[in-house]
Amino acid sequence: MTKDFNIDDISNLASIHLEEKEKLKLQKDLEIVLEHVDALKNIDVKDEKIDIHPLSKVLELREDESTPSLSHKDAMKNSPETKDGHFVVPPSIE
């Protein structure tokens, strides 16, 4: 099954650039883990229901009330680059 594992596709999806030598090590490690988790295939899970909360809590909703937000200064203070109150990034259109 690990033959399907294409590290370039996955790193592209995950938006992480990988160096060639990194790829080799990661590919090897991930294959070890994937081989281990293969054991799950032997478990019968046909009728199992999924609940994302381990204690099956039901979602509670919040009333539609607004409360003060972060100050503009606090919101921007960790920004790598700003301009006229905006966050700035290199062009997001290719």
């Binding site: 919101a75 301009k83 006229d84 109150g85 905006h86 966050f87 700035v88 990034v89 290199p90 062009p91 997001s92 259109i93 290719e94």
Partner: peptide, 12 residues
């Protein structure tokens, strides 16, 4: 022009 942007400003 949309294809020659030099940077992108973000407002959240």
């Amino acid at each position: 022009r949309i294809d020659s942007a030099t940077s992108t400003l973000l407002d959240f």
